[in-house]
Nucleic acid binder design. Sequence first.
DNA 1: GCAAATAATGCAATCGGTTGCGGAAAGCAA
DNA 2: TTGCTTTCCGCAACCGATTGCATTATTTGC
Lengths: 338, 338
Amino acid sequence: MDNITIKMLAKELNLSTAAISKALRDSHEISTPTKQRVQELASRLNYIPNAYAGSLRRRKSKTIAVVLPEVADSFFSLAINGIEAIAEEKGYHVLIYLTHESLSREQAILKDFQSGRVDGVLMSLTAETANYQHISELHDRDIPLVFFDRVCEEVDTAKITTNDFESSYKATQHLIECGCKRIALLSISNCLSISNKRFEGYEQALKDHHVAYEPINILCENDAVANYTFMQKIMSAPDRPDGVIATVEKLTTDIYLACKELKLTIPNDVKIVSFSNLSSASILSPSLTTVTQPAFEMGKAAAVILFKSLEKKNFTLHDESLIIPSELIIRGSTVLNA
Amino acid sequence: MDNITIKMLAKELNLSTAAISKALRDSHEISTPTKQRVQELASRLNYIPNAYAGSLRRRKSKTIAVVLPEVADSFFSLAINGIEAIAEEKGYHVLIYLTHESLSREQAILKDFQSGRVDGVLMSLTAETANYQHISELHDRDIPLVFFDRVCEEVDTAKITTNDFESSYKATQHLIECGCKRIALLSISNCLSISNKRFEGYEQALKDHHVAYEPINILCENDAVANYTFMQKIMSAPDRPDGVIATVEKLTTDIYLACKELKLTIPNDVKIVSFSNLSSASILSPSLTTVTQPAFEMGKAAAVILFKSLEKKNFTLHDESLIIPSELIIRGSTVLNA
DNA sequence: GCAAATAATGCAATCGGTTGCGGAAAGCAA
DNA sequence: TTGCTTTCCGCAACCGATTGCATTATTTGC
């Protein structure tokens, strides 16, 4: 069965396609009885306008893109939830693109957006992204862009982040207060703004509390097996850390397992804090002290700002920055019987 | 800056738009030197064809839709990974739609697909979906559709599932072998095929092993707080279960917390098995015995079949069923020191 | 009763590519 | 030279809907 088009409706009712179109859009140019006839037939035949014909003509696709490193991560999946909630409300469609932390994929994805496929873009950078030309090119084409979490400072647009510096500072301070002397920070990038801010917060806390330990940013791989053996190596060194801050959720399992393997008990031998949104954090063994990011809210806020720019004419996104605070939730991986 | 169109290239090179189009598509109708001139200019001006103009003409969008209940669930997020991996390889775009277990949203979403927005659909049903008219309507419009995990038996198309009956049977059998006498099954629907199959596997195992306990399908809400109190109620009853099978990942946290609250120790007082893909299952307290579904592979397989039907003409999807087995991974929630 | 205003509808261009077909020019054989 | 191919390109319709403007019919004003 072929799709119903405006042409068919026109023929059926002895009207022009123009009249049908105007009637369906409730134009004042069409008389009320005609409108009714048209609408009656359209709904009887279950007429659904072709999405791309309209998009082509209006130069609007009612579609946004979400570009992110991965989806199997509770932060990003919650953020998608927040984005989708708003998009659904506004009647927009959501295209998902995963970079898997690869800059070249990010570049290819963004280049495609110059095809007019999407009206706006929400994105969180790759861990590799140290070069912003592809982003600038998109921005130059006047495609509204909002960053969330992993933002690009160099591009003049809206950014939704959480208080990475303070969160990291607080997490570090908490470990210091729990008696840790050798605190290590695990991260996955030294390009990312969030990685840098988290490192700076950690560094500052060490300094402010006169901890002698040299701050170190331990760079992990994008591969679970590699990370597990890497953790084992780190945790079996003679001057192994007695406190660890994992800035990425997926490193949690690796470090827990490595400690188990090495018979290091948490929190006695090592204390751990993770940046994580795992709902199972409270039932881990031991329960995990987390910096819990407002993932859903961040996604939602990013979408809200993007739609503001899509719906209002003459509203261009400025270099504004919305910071939604994270929460340090203290549990058993840093404090006994928490 | 306005986008480059074929018309501009044509004017610049004193050719017709037809010639440009054919040259870019490497048609044999165009001479080699002309092709080169066109391609050179196109790449110099960074020409990118309008996505919707082509889609309109070819009646193909190179876009598929993924419709699922939620994304903040490791099964679904891994499935998306699998789908995206194939879509990316094939050069397709992926639209995501979340139903949040609502039938009416599912209906609205599917209805929109009659607009020609997508070439094919991958979906996993809502827990409420007991009525298939919206799905049949989509199917009648010849839009290729592949189900994964939560399938609709009534629709004649391809289905990717896991061995729900056997997995549930094995999980139940495992609990029986561990000495459980009162095993309860937690689920979220009595419409879903997977819920039914899991219930049947559970029921059959009880019967085969002559367990006197009456099989019960405990229906949970789609709300975390409600479920937590519900679990507390169930687990504080005098004839409370001594074995629990959670057929949905998100119920795990609720049941663990309820047991903790009620000072019931796992696995001594209660043994628990969850259908789950949580990578943190091994570091829970205690570690969680899981039925681990091949989420990534299922998503991938669904996408592969869908693309087969999209790429081959005259290939219509039959009522075939691909079953990828799950794995029962025994850990500390059913066996001490596992 | 006739011009002007108003209402209702159609025409045709447009969005940006795609493609079947026709035709000019060139090549080749007889 | 004639006749037949082959090569290369343009014309114009088309995908399906939208919209400015022209056109016709109807009403109003004087």
